[in-house]
Amino acid sequence: MLEIKNLHVKLEDEDKQILKGVDLTVPAGEVHAIMGPNGSGKSTLSYVLSGRDGYEVTEGEASLDGESLLEMEPEERAAAGLFLAFQYPVEIPGVGNMTFLRTAVNAQRKARGEEELSSAEFLKLIRQKAATLKIDSEMLKRPVNVGFSGGEKKRNEILQMAMLEPRMCILDETDSGLDVDAMRLVAEGVNALRSPDRAFLVITHYQRLLDHIKPDVVHIMADGRIVRTGGPELALEVEQNGYGDLLAEVG
């Protein structure tokens, strides 16, 4: 489903190379995890895939279902089925969470040539999805992420994912700043969406999220490259020995 080949990325305004040849393939139905030390380029990869400004792809490519992502606008990638749960969800004062979600859902449906949801249909859907994430109606009415706790922001990201039903979901450190209960809710939200025609790329610094969201494949990223790929046991290795040994091994 997601195919990344030899991706090289530098900052647009600076002569700084961040991704130095990333190769990664995530087939439909699978959950892949990317682990790696801070600064290794994990968030950059997620931003480049979803189309954020400020980065320049100098080499390589990335495609979703065979369609090249890199020339698309961010909203086109979203409509094509890509979703990024942000490491730091953005606060948007004055725009209701509900209004935002409805705008997003209907914009995507429109872009795909589908019929927009009516108010009633939308309400029904969001109430049901919010309930499973323990997001109350008051939180839905508040401005996007404003005054939300860290955990509430992350749950709100998962709610957006559940409403938008993307096929390729990237989660960037969705576990950071979550207590055990919130982590369980988030993981349940993700697991509920697992399906044969949907894939996940779970970026995390720690192993603990992977106790709840069982990955099929684990990649280790360091200094802008994927340096190791293995099964779930790789995450346990990181947990026990840290990145030091692993990276030393790779050289």
């Binding site: 606008e73 948007i92 914009a107």
Partner: peptide
């Protein structure tokens, strides 16, 4: 705010 603009667009909201 470019970050906010990207956030909205990444949800499929046209620019």
């Amino acid at each position: 705010d470019e970050t906010a603009l990207f956030y909205l667009r990444s949800r499929g909201v046209p620019k």
